[in-house]
Design a protein around this nucleic acid. Structure first.
Lengths: 347, 347
DNA sequence: CTTCCGGAATTAATCGATTAATTAAGGAGG
DNA sequence: CCTCCTTAATTAATCGATTAATTCCGGAAG
């Protein structure tokens, strides 16, 4: 292994000079610089990052703590993080909490992850990274979950502490756009299958739905709003309820693709044709939504972009340049129009 | 930040003693050990891994180079790696080559990834890790792709170098089992929609198919074997060809779930009912296969297990204990029986 | 001619651990 | 009593960089 010292000896300069050349600091004459660079090239030298880190107390590494890497949103966020990190010369250390296998879908019990997080922070991460990115499996409150002196940026989750940094997508405007899209197709009676009432995204998405109706001067019918639990079965069940209404909606907006899948199957079950008799819109643009019959119109989440912005944000915080880094970023979603939506027959 | 030196001072011993206590080496009396441990506890000290790495030249970190983390197989493999690494006290540094965005599906052009790999190895990984795990996006030959002195274990891909280490699933026995399953249901005319002829998994799976037929004394009909390209469209097109045969098969085994999806749609198109008139079996157990109509019977790949075994293997190699680590591991797949298969009506 | 200054290089301490070599203190054996 | 071991501790070099402090030198200014 070639060391900085070897370069110095061969180039007949001090180690300090080589270091200054490598880092572009200090006062180095053109000739010396070139001489050193030539030797570096010759010996195919690359600096030992460990030694550098020890002295500078910087690692050019961030930890990515994922609640569950096997959940559909996470890989693409990580992909974005990675892409951005490559450009910045950062590495990422990945820690996976496996929340799903730990607590299933009982998100309220997220507290039980605290020991796991503490262990990750203590034993693996905190000594080797400059900052921490936390990726949730579902947008929810994780206030107080991470206790560390290092910078943290949250994505796909949020905290109630206004000092915390986070990157998310804009739920309200996404739901607004989806509703607006259906209204522009001609729909006036639009069912909504919501997530649990105590979930923030459910609230935001409901607000978007409500505002879009209002902006178009359409009435709001409480009986068109049903509360599910994000799972297929609730979509199936609630769609049956909606379709059983004496004056059923001509379109249903489900707050995720899984429940939308339930809606589609309820339609098959009841002999309701999609999109001719009922338009269905999902949310998330999960892989499965492409394979539904008919292919589902849905909202694509800006996952990769979220990853990129998250990495960019933590990098800014780490390199405190004095510039004021905004605490929260919200990114727009994008409608993906497929075959589950059409203009209503009898608007 | 508390340093080892601080512990030593407070406990009135030398730094060496503290180090020996921490690592359980050297000759330390019980009283001294307890005294030191008490101080460590009091000051809430954790050793600086960077400093340790510098001296020992070990990092307890492995690099995971993924060809594409957004491909369905990769997250679960990484999950397995992570689980095993946690148990061993290892961290993982993740590098993502984004092969799909680089070269799409033209796998033969994998060579073009070499510069990216070289960059990853040089600038990020090689100085900070004890070993390297490489995860492919598709089982294929990656001989010579990674040039490094560190231990490497390949998974979800293979090399022709018998010195290389790799972990994979057993294609041949999986295809054998799938075919055997159909035969036991009563099928005698079984179509096969293969991957490209120049792909190793295609070969192995074909061998499994062929052997199962032979073992049951069934004839092999070449016209029942069609060669696709792993994509949905080829499944659709080739299923139409098979169904157009004067004596069409009563079951079709597709070598992946995407092509099986094409088969299902071809059946819908031709009015062939699944599974009543045709049984369909896929391969991979991708998320989408659960959402097909009918839900697809398919082969589940032991992805998490592969990750675990891969991590375990690289750990053994890193800790060269002299034990002979087997060069290749092959894991069994598992049939997932859903609603696309049944006994044939007229066997 | 002396002093001062600035550019270009070097010296040497330092980051926080590990560990070979050494020392010191008892105890056993001759 | 002296020697030799064993056990338990310390000393100090080392890993491979960074960087504050210092030195050296030549030219400009007074």
């Amino acid at each position: 292994m070639v060391r900085l010292k070897d370069i110095a000896k061969k180039a007949n300069v001090s180690t300090a000079t080589v270091s200054y050349v490598l880092n572009g600091t200090g006062n180095i004459s053109k000739e010396t610089r070139e001489k050193v660079l030539k030797v570096i090239e010759e010996l195919n030298y690359t600096p030992n990052q460990i030694a550098k880190s020890l002295k500078t107390n910087k690692t050019s590494t961030v930890a990515v703590i994922a609640e569950d890497i096997t959940v559909f949103n996470t890989p693409e966020i990580i992909d974005g993080i990675n892409e951005c990190a490559d450009g910045l010369g950062f590495s990422i250390i990945l820690a996976n909490l496996r929340v799903h296998r730990r607590i299933g879908n009982r998100f309220s019990e997220i507290e039980s992850c605290k020991p796991a997080i503490k262990q990750v922070l203590d034993s693996l991460v905190s000594k080797k990274v400059d900052g921490i990115i936390y990726i949730g499996v579902h947008p929810r409150d994780v206030t107080g979950l991470i206790e560390t002196a290092k910078p943290v940026v949250y994505t796909y989750c949020y905290t109630t502490n206004p000092e915390d940094y986070s990157v998310n997508y804009d739920d309200e405007s996404a739901a607004y756009d989806a509703t607006d899209y259906l209204i522009r197709l001609g729909h006036k009676k639009i069912g909504l299958i919501s997530g649990p009432i105590d979930s923030l995204p459910s609230h935001s998405r409901f607000n978007g739905y409500y505002k879009a109706l209002a902006d178009h001067g359409l009435p709001f019918y409480p009986q068109y709003v049903k509360t599910g639990d994000w799972e297929y079965e609730s979509g199936f069940r609630l769609a049956r309820e909606l379709l059983g209404d004496p004056e059923p909606p001509t379109a249903i907006l489900a707050m995720n693709d899984l429940m939308a899948g339930g809606v589609l199957d309820a339609c098959k079950d009841k002999g309701v044709r999609v999109p001719e008799e009922l338009s269905v819109v999902g949310f998330d643009n999960r892989e499965c939504s492409f394979y539904y019959t008919p292919k589902l119109t849905t909202m694509d989440l800006p996952l990769r972009e979220m990853g990129i912005r998250t990495m960019d944000m933590i990098h800014r915080i780490i390199n405190r340049t004095g510039e004021d880094v905004p605490r929260t970023v919200k990114l727009k979603c994008r409608m993906i129009e497929r075959h589950s939506t059409a203009a209503p027959r009898n608007p």
